[in-house]
Amino acid sequence: MDSLVVLVLCLSCLLLLSLWRQSSGRGKLPPGPTPLPVIGNILQIGIKDISKSLTNLSKVYGPVFTLYFGLKPIVVLHGYEAVKEALIDLGEEFSGRGIFPLAERANRGFGIVFSNGKKWKEIRRFSLMTLRNFGMGKRSIEDRVQEEARCLVEELRKTKASPCDPTFILGCAPCNVICSIIFHKRFDYKDQQFLNLMEKLNENIKILSSPWIQICNNFSPIIDYFPGTHNKLLKNVAFMKSYILEKVKEHQESMDMNNPQDFIDCFLMKMEKEKHNQPSEFTIESLENTAVDLFGAGTETTSTTLRYALLLLLKHPEVTAKVQEEIERVIGRNRSPCMQDRSHMPYTDAVVHEVQRYIDLLPTSLPHAVTCDIKFRNYLIPKGTTILISLTSVLHDNKEFPNPEMFDPHHFLDEGGNFKKSKYFMPFSAGKRICVGEALAGMELFLFLTSILQNFNLKSLVDPKNLDTTPVVNGFASVPPFYQLCFIPV
């Protein structure tokens, strides 16, 4: 009986604490739906499609509103004006990374994606500088992407125009580009180590996009005490870190300090320079996690976009025909596509942009946080508050993009057929937390897609009208449904 009384008292205290925290903070924060004790607004949000729920709530509470995930307040920004004001106009104040408990377990605050403060700034600055020195957006990395595009075309030829699921092959190409940047090595598509790495990356994007992960991140005790797919994700990350550590040891034994070959060499050189400046942010643990982040951000996002792009091109054969006509006119058949071609191919450029806009790969991006107490639109948001960005509300804005739910390359073309930029184009987020590999991803999408369409016609196994382009999961990332196609050599 005594234990029951204690339990009831504990629960009562928890409920009172929950109510007090919510009521004391709500006077400062933007308005929002009334949260339930302990669980907050979790029942009012469709976990399978958070973005749709945010759109519905914005119609009631406006472009800036507050939700509670458990006891934790989260300020939501919906629509271009609110997102721009926060991420661009007040970029420094909104540059923090929001709480992501599962990532905390995986990387302990290291790396480039989930770190904060001085650690994040130094690692991000170093990573950007190193990638630029190796030619991100310049010639040397373009050579690597072109080489991988040629290998991709050869792998597709091996399908002999038979029906195939493109998931694996389209994942190999961007993964190999990242391998060449980090390890100075590309792998054969049949290499077992490479296959294991690909498998872990593919599993992780599916797990991260599941409703279960949303629950884990908002009720963090689940991570330590409950079984579930989150444990598989943590094991996959541990596998990748151990693999990278092996490569780091190989580099330490063979590195030429006067001739760095890749990202690992550059990081080890930085560690050597910083060894007298303790404590340094440049450690082996930081290198492991930064490399894992580059793999995660640079492989599955690009391969998922490529997979979605081919599905949309199957669905819209008239678009595919126009792209192939432009390829034939500008590039021809006797040389590989290059980035200089893009400025002469406005329709193809528009298609690449429209694919990214339409699929809305990361509907709410990753959570941000404010780095200080900030007054925002007459609300006071306390330091450390998590900020949720609705990228969907920007990419699918119906004023900027008429009929935003329709796939239409003319969203990025003017009346004369010239490519038209849009400030609403934010597939990689915006501001200080914009994806480090934005330029690389854009290069890969253009070169891989043009190389495929230069060499193959795409054949659907069903009537294009019957192809479903609805994402199968739409949590962290929008993942396309399973499909097969035939690559018919031109």
Score class of each variant (00 low, 15 high):
Val5Thr: 15
Val5Arg: 01
Val6Arg: 02
Cys10Phe: 14
Ser12Ala: 10
Ser12Phe: 11
Cys13Arg: 01
Leu19Asp: 00
Trp20Cys: 05
Arg26Cys: 08
Lys28Ser: 13
Leu29Met: 12
Pro31Arg: 08
Gly32Cys: 04
Pro33Gln: 00
Pro33Val: 00
Pro35Gly: 08
Pro35Arg: 14
Leu36Val: 10
Pro37Trp: 06
Ile39Gly: 04
Ile39His: 01
Asn41Glu: 01
Asn41Tyr: 01
Asn41Asp: 03
Asn41Phe: 00
Ile45Met: 12
Ile47Gly: 14
Ile47Arg: 13
Ile50Trp: 07
Ser51Phe: 03
Asn56Phe: 09
Asn56Met: 10
Ser58Gln: 10
Ser58Leu: 01
Val60Lys: 15
Gly62Thr: 00
Gly62Met: 01
Pro63Ser: 13
Val64Gly: 01
Val64Phe: 03
Thr66Ile: 03
Leu67Trp: 06
Leu67Cys: 11
Leu71Tyr: 13
Val75Asn: 00
Val76Ala: 04
Leu77Cys: 06
Leu77Asp: 00
His78Val: 11
His78Thr: 12
His78Arg: 06
Val83Met: 06
Val83Pro: 01
Lys84Cys: 11
Lys84Ser: 10
Glu85Leu: 06
Asp89Pro: 03
Phe94Gly: 05
Ala103Ser: 12
Arg105Val: 07
Ala106His: 05
Phe110Val: 13
Ser115Arg: 07
Trp120Glu: 06
Ile123His: 12
Arg125Phe: 12
Phe126Lys: 04
Ser127Arg: 04
Leu128Ile: 14
Leu128Thr: 13
Met129Thr: 15
Met129Phe: 08
Met129Gln: 15
Thr130Val: 10
Thr130Asp: 06
Thr130Gly: 08
Arg132Met: 13
Arg132His: 08
Phe134Leu: 15
Gly137His: 15
Ile141Leu: 11
Asp143Lys: 07
Arg144Phe: 13
Arg150Thr: 09
Val153Ala: 01
Val153Pro: 01
Glu154Gln: 13
Glu155Pro: 02
Lys158Leu: 13
Cys164Leu: 11
Cys164Ser: 05
Asp165Arg: 00
Thr167Lys: 10
Gly171Pro: 02
Gly171Tyr: 08
Pro174Gln: 15
Cys175Ala: 12
Val177Cys: 04
Val177Thr: 06
Phe183Ile: 03
Arg186Leu: 01
Asp188Gln: 09
Asp191Lys: 02
Asp191Gly: 02
Phe194Leu: 12
Phe194Met: 14
Leu195Met: 13
Leu197Pro: 00
Met198His: 07
Lys200Gly: 07
Asn202Pro: 03
Asn204Phe: 06
Ile205Pro: 04
Ser209Pro: 05
Ile213Gln: 05
Gln214Asp: 05
Ile215Trp: 12
Cys216Glu: 06
Phe219His: 04
Ser220Glu: 13
Ser220Thr: 09
Pro221Cys: 12
Pro221Gln: 09
Gly228His: 06
Gly228Trp: 09
Thr229Val: 13
Asn231Arg: 13
Lys232Val: 13
Leu234Arg: 14
Tyr243Gln: 08
Tyr243Lys: 08
Ile244Leu: 12
Glu246Gly: 10
Lys249Cys: 10
Gln252Ser: 07
Ser254Lys: 12
Met255Glu: 07
Met257Glu: 14
Met257Arg: 14
Asn258Arg: 14
Pro260Asp: 13
Gln261Val: 15
Gln261Glu: 13
Ile264Glu: 03
Asp265Gly: 12
Cys266Pro: 04
Cys266Asp: 07
Phe267Thr: 04
Leu268Ile: 09
Leu268Ser: 03
Met269Asp: 11
Met269Cys: 14
Met271Tyr: 04
Glu272Ser: 12
Lys273Ser: 14
His276Met: 10
His276Tyr: 07
Gln278Trp: 11
Gln278Met: 07
Phe282Val: 05
Thr283Cys: 13
Ser286Phe: 03
Asn289Ala: 14
Val292Thr: 11
Leu294Met: 12
Ala297Gln: 15
Ser303Cys: 10
Thr304Gln: 12
Leu306Trp: 00
Tyr308Leu: 02
Tyr308Phe: 14
Tyr308Gln: 05
Ala309Leu: 08
Leu313His: 00
His316Val: 03
Thr320Pro: 06
Ala321Val: 12
Gln324His: 10
Glu326Arg: 00
Ile327Gly: 01
Asn334Leu: 11
Met339His: 06
Met339Ser: 10
Asp341Met: 06
Asp341Lys: 02
Arg342Ala: 09
Pro346Gly: 03
Ala350Asn: 00
Val355Ala: 07
Val355Ser: 03
Gln356Phe: 09
Ile359Gln: 05
Asp360Pro: 12
Leu361Gln: 11
Thr364Glu: 02
Ser365Trp: 15
Leu366Lys: 06
His368Ser: 11
His368Ala: 05
Ala369Phe: 04
Val370Pro: 05
Arg377Ile: 02
Tyr379His: 07
Leu380Ser: 14
Gly384Thr: 03
Gly384Ser: 06
Thr392Asp: 06
Asn398Ser: 14
Glu400Lys: 02
Phe401Val: 05
Phe401His: 04
Pro402Glu: 09
Pro402Leu: 08
Pro404Asn: 06
Pro404Leu: 03
His410Val: 09
His410Lys: 15
Phe412Gly: 00
Leu413Glu: 00
Asp414His: 06
Ser422Asp: 05
Ser422Glu: 03
Ser422Cys: 07
Lys423His: 12
Lys423Leu: 10
Met426Leu: 10
Pro427Arg: 13
Pro427Ile: 03
Pro427Tyr: 05
Val436Leu: 15
Gly437Leu: 15
Glu438Ala: 12
Glu438Arg: 05
Ala439Glu: 15
Gly442Gln: 15
Glu444Ser: 05
Glu444Ile: 03
Leu445His: 08
Leu445Gly: 03
Leu447Asp: 02
Leu447Glu: 02
Leu447Val: 10
Thr450Leu: 03
Asn455Phe: 03
Leu458Asn: 00
Ser460Met: 04
Leu461Gly: 08
Val462Asp: 10
Asp463Pro: 13
Pro464Arg: 08
Asn466Arg: 08
Asn466Glu: 15
Asp468Cys: 09
Asp468Pro: 07
Thr470Ser: 12
Pro471Gly: 07
Val472Arg: 15
Gly475Asn: 12
Gly475Ala: 09
Ser478Gln: 05
Ser478Asp: 02
Val479Lys: 13
Pro481Cys: 01
Ile488Met: 12
